[in-house]
Design a protein around this nucleic acid. Structure first.
Length: 480
RNA sequence: GGCGCUGUGGCGGAGUGGUAACGCGAAGGUCUGCAAAACCUUUUUUCGCCGGUUCAAUUCCGGUCGGCGCCUCCA
């Protein structure tokens, strides 16, 4: 398959190092608040990437970390820990906050039908590994000590900032922050921060440098190496991580191992809300709960993600989410055909479905072109709508939908059949129609409507379908 | 100031050196007991602007204007 590699800025043919397994590390959530849809966009894109890799005839070892310590709030080196800050605000401990939002995150993953990584390690469970990594860097001569911690000396690493094209000599620190004057270079970053002497932190550990906590770039390197080895196939994350976090991960890992850290870097672009970035500081984050409040299926967010390419900057509006949910609904209606293979038309047959599946696979493997995949799926839907599914193609159709569910995670096969009594009502309606008893027929149709069963009278007979979510209370307030 | 992304029809959003997928919406028509669906036509002589290369550019190159991101925790 083809993937864009940030290291070369080109779309390259991707082959895993091992012939039997692909190793993937994705930067996970920091558990100090509810994720907003921007965060979810990236997590959904990880999911699509991994689903595609799993179709690449090879098993996948996927690690996504849970950052429950170490992210600093303002200045990268002097700020307060996010979790500590959230803890102080709510009166809970940092540990309680982390647990609460970790559970919330896992709950959200389930709602969005995200695959579960093989490992979801927590940073706080891997303090020893992080300390060991610092020791290796220390031994290799990449560290120095200043008053507030142990730092990485970026000038010692030959290709520091190469992936991000950083021009080190011309790098200026922003005027908004004050760089610790003890740092040798603005790009140097903390590996171990000492606990403040006057404040007791909820999260701190002993080390031979002194009591403190690890710098936030460290955990990804340490856990990636622990679970996946020194060199992995793919490391993915948000596009914003290129210049700092991933640049530092590379510097740390490669200085410790003397091996390439990750062969491919796949970066997910951001989504814009009202033409600006979604971020905590702008307080414009929309959560999954907000979507549920508008009576829209959460999975429509997955559909919206699929509708744009992962490398382009997508736009979120409530209108576009609503349109995505309509499209999801139409695919679900297509899926309802699997309960009613009544057509005699053999147009949608095994060969046609196989051809579609092959084309879809090609688009998916072409740098994850999910918009194209959806375009093809819409073609299938059109064919199914026009021709129906013949009984002898019933299983082929289900196999096709199963493939779509595997790669897109839209849960097209998760719905259940309608009840026997509803099917009887549909038959009764047909009888009434044949007798030209339109009043009786329409009355039955109204009853079916009220049970979220809609009827299309096709040439080969009535086809029913359902609408998604809370269709009885349409989302009238969806206005941007 | 540095680095990077981007500018496509009413909206969203793919894509290609030879004349624009797909979704949603809109208009007209055929069909139909009605509704829905389906089918046909329209909704762009057109891909920010100006040059260059080419038989041919939306697609390549240069310039220019605009939007956005990162450089500070962020997906």
């Amino acid at each position: 398959m083809k993937l864009h590699n940030t290291l070369t800025r080109k779309v390259e043919e991707f082959r895993p190092l091992s012939s039997t397994n692909t190793t993937v590390y994705t930067c996970g959530p920091t558990v100090y608040d509810f994720p907003h849809i921007g965060n979810w966009f990236t997590f959904i894109r990880y999911d699509i990437l991994v689903r595609a890799l799993k179709e690449n005839e090879i098993s996948v070892s996927w690690v996504m970390n849970i950052t429950d310590v170490g992210h600093l709030v303002s200045d990268a080196d002097d700020g307060q820990d996010k979790l500590d800050k959230a803890a102080k605000k709510t009166g809970k401990t940092a540990w309680e906050i982390a647990e609460y939002f970790t559970n919330d995150f896992i709950d959200g993953m389930s709602k969005l039908n995200l695959l579960t990584p093989e490992f979801m390690p927590k940073a706080t469970d891997h303090i020893k590994e992080q300390i060991d990594l610092i020791s290796r860097l220390e031994k290799n001569g990449f560290t120095y000590r200043i008053s507030d911690g142990i730092y990485y000396d970026t000038s010692k690493f030959k290709n520091y900032g190469k992936m991000a094209n950083l021009d080190i000599g011309n790098l200026k620190a922003s005027t908004r922050i004050t760089v610790n004057p003890e740092k040798r270079s603005p790009t140097d970053f903390a590996l171990w921060k000492f606990s403040p002497t006057d404040i007791k932190r909820d999260m701190e550990w002993d080390s031979h440098w002194g009591k403190g906590f690890p710098g936030w770039h460290l955990e990804c390197s340490a856990m990636s190496m622990k679970y996946l080895g020194d060199t992995i196939d793919i490391h993915s994350g948000g596009i914003d991580h290129i210049p700092i976090h991933h640049t530092n991960e590379i510097a740390q890992s490669e200085a410790a191992t003397n091996k390439q850290f990750s062969r491919f870097w796949v970066h997910m672009n951001h989504i814009l809300l009202n033409e600006e970035k979604i971020s905590k500081s702008l307080s414009n984050g929309i959560t999954l709960e907000d979507i549920e409040k508008k009576h829209m299926p959460v999975l429509s967010l997955r559909m919206l993600v699929l509708e744009s390419h992962y490398r382009t900057q997508a736009a979120f509006t409530w209108t576009s989410l609503m349109k995505a949910s309509l499209r999801l609904e139409s695919f679900q209606a297509m899926s309802d055909h699997r309960w009613q293979a009544i057509s005699k038309d053999n147009f949608v047959n095994q060969e046609l479905l196989r051809n579609y599946q092959e084309s879809i696979k090609n688009e998916l493997f072409n740098d994850l072109n999910t918009p194209k995949v959806l375009a093809l799926l819409s073609k299938v839907q059109e064919d199914v709508d026009s021709h129906g599914i013949a009984a002898k193609n019933h299983q082929h159709f289900i196999d096709f939908l199963d493939y779509i569910d595997r790669i897109l995670g839209l849960k097209l096969l998760s719905s259940l059949d309608i009840s026997v009594s509803h099917k009887k009502l549909i038959n009764d309606r047909e009888k009434s129609r044949l007798n030209k008893d339109w009043n009786a027929a329409d009355k039955i149709r109204d009853e079916l409507f009220s049970n979220n069963i809609y009827i299309n009278d096709k040439v080969h007979g009535p086809i029913w379908y359902r609408k998604l979510g809370d269709s009885q209370t349409p989302a009238v307030d969806v206005v941007d």
